[in-house]
Simulated scan of single mutants.
Amino acid sequence: MRDLRQLDRLLTGAIGRLTVASGGGRAARLAMVYGVDKPHDGLAGIPAGTAMVDHPNVTTLFIDEVPARPFVGVRFNVRVVVRCDVSSLGQPLFQACELRGSATAPTSDQALLDCTHALCKGVEVEDSLFRPQTPTMFTSGVLGHDFVIRRSVFEHCVDGFSSYNTNAGTTDYDVRVQVLGCIARLAAMWKVPTTRHADGVSHNDVLGQLQGGKGAVVRGCLVDGTPSSTVGDQDAVTPGAGRRCLSAVLISSLHPADGAVIDRNWLSNTKFGVEADGAADLTGTGTVTGNRLTNHVVPINLDATQRAGFTVSANVDGATGAAIGATYQGGGTSTTNGTYGATYGTLTY
Score class of each variant (00 low, 15 high):
residue 2 R to D: 13
residue 3 D to T: 11
residue 4 L to C: 00
residue 10 L to D: 07
residue 12 T to D: 08
residue 12 T to K: 15
residue 30 L to E: 15
residue 36 V to C: 08
residue 36 V to Q: 15
residue 46 I to K: 05
residue 52 M to H: 03
residue 55 H to R: 13
residue 59 T to K: 09
residue 70 P to D: 05
residue 70 P to Q: 11
residue 70 P to Y: 02
residue 72 V to R: 00
residue 73 G to Q: 10
residue 74 V to Y: 04
residue 87 S to R: 10
residue 90 G to E: 08
residue 92 P to G: 08
residue 93 L to D: 09
residue 98 E to Y: 01
residue 99 L to Y: 01
residue 100 R to V: 00
residue 107 T to H: 12
residue 111 A to H: 06
residue 112 L to F: 02
residue 112 L to A: 02
residue 113 L to I: 04
residue 113 L to M: 04
residue 114 D to F: 03
residue 115 C to M: 01
residue 118 A to L: 11
residue 124 E to A: 12
residue 125 V to Y: 00
residue 135 P to L: 03
residue 136 T to E: 00
residue 138 F to G: 02
residue 146 D to L: 02
residue 152 S to I: 01
residue 153 V to S: 01
residue 167 N to G: 06
residue 171 T to A: 13
residue 178 Q to E: 15
residue 186 L to T: 07
residue 188 A to K: 06
residue 190 W to S: 07
residue 192 V to P: 08
residue 193 P to S: 11
residue 195 T to E: 14
residue 200 G to M: 14
residue 200 G to E: 14
residue 204 N to K: 04
residue 205 D to P: 06
residue 215 G to R: 10
residue 223 V to S: 01
residue 223 V to K: 04
residue 230 T to Q: 12
residue 238 T to N: 09
residue 240 G to A: 10
residue 247 S to M: 09
residue 249 V to T: 04
residue 250 L to V: 14
residue 252 S to C: 07
residue 268 S to D: 01
residue 271 K to L: 15
residue 273 G to T: 00
residue 273 G to C: 05
residue 275 E to T: 06
residue 275 E to N: 09
residue 282 L to K: 06
residue 285 T to G: 11
residue 290 G to M: 07
residue 295 N to M: 14
residue 300 I to L: 06
residue 301 N to Y: 02
residue 302 L to V: 06
residue 303 D to W: 07
residue 304 A to H: 08
residue 319 A to V: 04
residue 319 A to F: 07
residue 321 G to H: 12
residue 326 A to S: 09
residue 337 N to E: 14
residue 338 G to S: 07
residue 338 G to C: 07
residue 338 G to P: 05
residue 339 T to Q: 14
residue 347 L to S: 08
